[in-house]
Nucleic acid binder design. Structure first.
Length: 477
RNA sequence: GGAAGGGUGGCCGAGCGGUUUAAGGCACCGGUCUUGAAAACCGGCAGAGGUGAAAGCCUCUCGUGAGUUCGAAUCUCACCCCUUCCGCCA
């Protein structure tokens, strides 16, 4: 969420930022709403002041036993107007908030121009890509080993799931443990085992909602029909005759049948959303960042550094037909996630530090990678600046994203109301939040299979992982 | 699933229709005292927003929303959240 005051002072900067991201401008619309709302607010506040003063006088008169009828009538007179203004003000405020909630973060000045991944700029690379003619893709290697089973996964859960067996399942576990150990021991991150189901408000805080609803999975304790039934029982009596939210109410063979008006549907959808269940986290960024949700922390506590290995759940709604083979793009995968909460002064350096922590994972595993500065058009909603780390996949003969490290500035903090107080300072200010994969475990497994594949179909185990694999040097068919 | 209790400032906690501009305490900040510190004493200290050049003035917020009232932290209703006990269960 952006600061409305910032937009007031820098409307052009907002529009330029949106254009840089390849999105339509919005400043004029926002400022229009804002101006209208403030006008009404000022009017309303003047009336409120008048009412408060008069009410106080009434109280004094009554205490002394005097007659206050004249004053009481005077206050009653303004009531209707106040109610009107109040309703108007609220409607505008809600509209403005809803709109603001869908505006992405403003890219940092040094973020490259560009509308898609072609605009990204390479920062550095580690090892050169290996090119062999007979490199296999990870699913061939895994299936040939007999340890990667897509058919059974599909039987259990449908497309975009994988079942790992034996040494491959263990390799996945080893990778996660290796990463967690490194980040906690060498980079000072505190290991967290967070909830995987979170409230709507928490998803809003990090920016997954309301804009990216279709990409998420939700768990409900009510079916839509049950929910609808409750809605009808709750509201039918007062709504049918009063406001006519429902078009008709008639009886067929003694059964009451109700059909909905548009307004009724809207009302229902609103309630359904409100009564909705918990959301499955698409990344541990969500629970980790929200650790400071609605908190005012001491400056001395910053920076906070958290790491967690969790399953991540993604609907992949917009990715139909993309990466359908293998386990590159799944509805469920493990990821080790890094989150830092910092002061505004610290966030830039922390961003470098975090990216380095993620890169170190790949260096230890001796996997070739390159680090890219994302261009404005390719950055995520909440990010101010992002570095992607792309690992080399010889089977695909290309680099693929394995980590994404973003500095979100105060964008998420504002949504979460996460603040800190500088020692000596009166008013609190928003923290900065950063998140990065350190790294995606599933994709890292893929990278190891493809980079460590041998001609005989076996897969060597990187030296750094052997302690986690009981000293095993290779997985053989 | 059943029953009960509760949500008040950074934290604890009083208040249950009108001198509440929310008592008191803790924490924090400033001062006096001290070689320094502690203690003691004195003072300050909620957030969001509007308005203004500024000092300041004003509005809203006691979980959220609606209602009653001239006036609501306080009364009514709905919802959200938390805690405890019982039941079931990894």
């Amino acid at each position: 969420m952006l600061d409305i005051k910032y937009i007031r002072d820098n409307p052009d900067a907002l529009d330029q930022a949106l254009q840089k991201r390849g999105q339509p401008v919005a400043a004029k619309q926002i400022l229009g709403l804002d101006k209208e709302r403030r006008g009404i607010q000022t009017q309303l506040q003047e009336l409120q002041q008048k009412r408060n003063d008069t009410s106080k006088k009434i109280g004094e008169l009554k205490r002394t036993g005097a007659d206050a009828t004249a004053l009481m009538e005077q206050v009653a007179h303004d009531k209707n107007l106040m109610a009107e203004l109040e309703a108007e003000e609220k409607e505008l405020a809600v509209e403005l908030d809803k709109f603001l909630a869908t505006i992405p973060n403003i890219p940092a000045p040094d973020v490259p121009e560009g509308k898609d991944e072609k605009g990204n700029v390479e920062q550095r690379r580690f090892k050169e890509p290996t090119r062999k003619n007979n490199s296999k893709e990870h699913f061939e290697i895994g299936e040939n080993l007999g340890l990667m089973d897509f058919d059974t996964a599909a039987l259990l859960s449908g497309a975009r799931f994988t079942l790992l067996k034996g040494q491959l399942a263990k390799l996945e576990r080893a990778l996660g443990n290796f990463m967690l150990d490194m980040h906690t021991k060498e980079f000072g991150y505190t290991e967290i085992s967070p909830p995987l189901l979170v409230r709507e408000q928490i998803m809003f805080g990090t920016g997954q909602l309301p804009k990216f609803r279709e990409d998420q999975f939700q768990v409900r304790d009510l079916t839509p029909d049950e929910s609808r039934g409750i809605f009808l029982q709750l509201s039918l009596e007062e709504m049918v005759d009063k406001k006519n939210y429902f078009q008709t109410e008639r009886y067929e063979n003694g059964v009451r049948v109700v059909s909905y008006t548009e307004e009724g549907e809207k009302r229902f959808n609103h309630l359904y959303e409100q009564k909705g269940g918990l959301w499955l986290i698409p990344t541990a960024e969500v629970p980790l960042t929200n650790i400071v949700h609605d908190e005012i922390v001491d400056e001395a506590q910053l920076p906070m550094r958290f790491v967690a290995k969790t399953p991540c759940f993604r609907a992949e709604a917009g990715a139909a037909g993309k990466d359908t083979r293998g386990m590159l793009r799944q509805h469920q995968f493990y990821k080790v996630e890094l989150v830092s909460i910092t002061t505004p002064d610290q966030s830039e350096a922390e961003h470098q530090r975090m990216t380095e922590a993620a890169e170190t994972v790949l260096k230890r595993l001796e996997l070739p990678f390159r680090t890219m500065a994302l261009c404005a058009g390719d950055m995520g909603f909440a990010a101010r600046k992002t570095f992607d780390i792309e690992v080399w996949l010889p089977g695909q003969n290309t680099y693929r994203e394995i980590s994404s490290c973003s500095n979100c500035g105060d964008f998420q903090a504002r949504r979460m109301k996460a603040r800190f107080r500088k020692t000596g300072d009166k008013s609190p200010q928003f923290v900065h939040t950063l998140n990065g994969s350190g790294v995606a475990v599933g994709r890292c497994l893929i990278a190891i299979l493809e980079n460590y594949q041998q001609d005989d179909g076996s897969v060597a185990i990187p030296a750094a992982l052997r302690p986690y694999m009981d000293g095993l040097e290779a997985i053989k068919p």
